[in-house]
Design a protein around this nucleic acid. Sequence first.
RNA 1: GGCCCCGUAGCUCAGUGGAUAGAGCAGCAGCCUUCGAAGCUGUUGGUCGCGAGUUCGAGUCUCGCCGGGGUCGCCA
Length: 556
Amino acid sequence: MTALARDTIASAFRAAVDVAAADLGWPAEARAVAIEVEHPADPGHGDYASAVALRLAKPLRRPPLAIAEAIRDRFPASETVASVEVAKPGFVNVRLADAWVARQVDTIAAAGEGYGRSTRLEGQRIQVEYISANPTGPMHVANARGGPIGDVLSNVLAFMGARVTREYYVNDTGSQVDQLGVSVALRYRELFGEKVEIPADAYPAEYVIDIATRIRELEGDRYVGMALEDQAKAFAPKALDIIVNEWHKGTARKLGIDYDVWYRESELVGSEYFRATIDELRARGALEERDGAVWLRSRELGEDIDSVVIRSNGVPTYFGVDLVYHRQCLVERGFDRKIDVWGANTYGHSLRMRAAMKAFGLLDRWEVVIYQYVRFLHEGEILGMSKRRGQFILLDDVIDRVGRDVARWFFLQSSPDRMLDFDLELAVTQSSENPAYYVQYAHARIASIFGTAAERGLSEDGADVALLTAPAEADLVKALLRFPEVLDDVLARRASHLLAAYALDLAGRFHSYYRDHRVVGDDPALSRARLRLVRAVQVTLRQVLGLLGISAPDHM
RNA sequence: GGCCCCGUAGCUCAGUGGAUAGAGCAGCAGCCUUCGAAGCUGUUGGUCGCGAGUUCGAGUCUCGCCGGGGUCGCCA
């Protein structure tokens, strides 16, 4: 549990504004104003700054500089802050006290695996659902992106004290599964010498042959001679088992993802719970019958069009099952919150789901993080990806080529809002220069420094951090202090890429420091202090890499 | 056509109203007899797609346009 320096400064601003308002008779707007504290781009402007005086200028009808001075004069004295200055046109700039900053080195080093952790989400049960790729084929690069994004979001939520369930929703019903069964049956026949033609709506890809081969290995020729329809019915669940239990689970593990629950959609279809939930929606007046089908009255709930929940043939749609699943998670299964990490191709579905959650009165406990597509480039050309046509890059192959750490970094480095281009050739050739290695190298270097120290009989025991007086040392500590602030932003914005950006920044600062400041040197006291500082950097790098799900090696 | 995302250095991208717009890669010039050169230092490179507006202040917010991607199914 670590107090954020940013919060400490913001509270001080709040206090100063309130006192000034009381002293000078400022109107109510002064107390209502939001205090925002930021890191100035220019270090000459201090460590933290607020533009609150500029914001108050208009409502108070006073010059911003005068307001800033009034705040400065009432800024509470503390051991944290060294100076408070006013800068035109009305900024209030705060500089942290060097001694306080140096002391944080001890705090961070001692916190270890507790550094940055918080209990603010304690007691909350949150389900994060991610990847949930169609179980009709192997996982490919396009639907991989949600994996690291959802996983890191889960890590951060758990780091903040929430009880997190990582869930994978398996769409194991519907016409796609029937098609898979037929496709496998045809390939099975082919394996026994029959000449078959693959219809346009079946899956022609190579992996279907792999599945048929697998079934032949396991069960031999016992399905030969059966009608195609019966073969398809028998093979569909077997194919799903192979794809989900052997392939998808294997790929998830390779990516470093450990799911708590693999939920099967088929558990819901045809269940009493499904019917009861539909009845509840009907009782709420959210459904209507039209053309023999059952519709959710989405338009009444603010969407553009209504959506079919149960088809005229009595079979629920994908949406119909998914909305029941969502309700089950938030009501029967007791999650306080459900976060879906979905690809851009589910945008339409997310709008329908929003209407459904509104109808249930659960909208405020559900959210969706939508990430944009990953486009795949091969030799500079954009490739279309289609599971049906068998055109896609297997995620397993990518991980095998570049490694888990680089693969995760690639998906985590940029905002989910931005479309990614994945060029395998480029990814492989550049992997030795990958930013992930840049960060890991900083960690390995630190391990090496401790190795050298041990050889020379030096340790951090008895370190006096007051000896850390170099400006570069204070800057490094301030970078460490930003870690909890970054977590705060990641949580507020569901933006895991900020963590990757922070890791890069911190590693860069450390590499710079390393060049100019010898840690294990001639002065034992100074060496001990610097070892403690390096320990604090190590602690922070481990926390960040751990949350990103990227290894923190001692050797590379 | 409606809705969602994006357009920032040659390339890949940070930057959710603040002060002089940043990093990595690529390019150029340097730095290893001392803790790991997968590193560091310096340097080249920008009409932040275009145009208006709001604001003390706009890469960031609003509107329009241009360009790219997604979505709008009794598919999943």
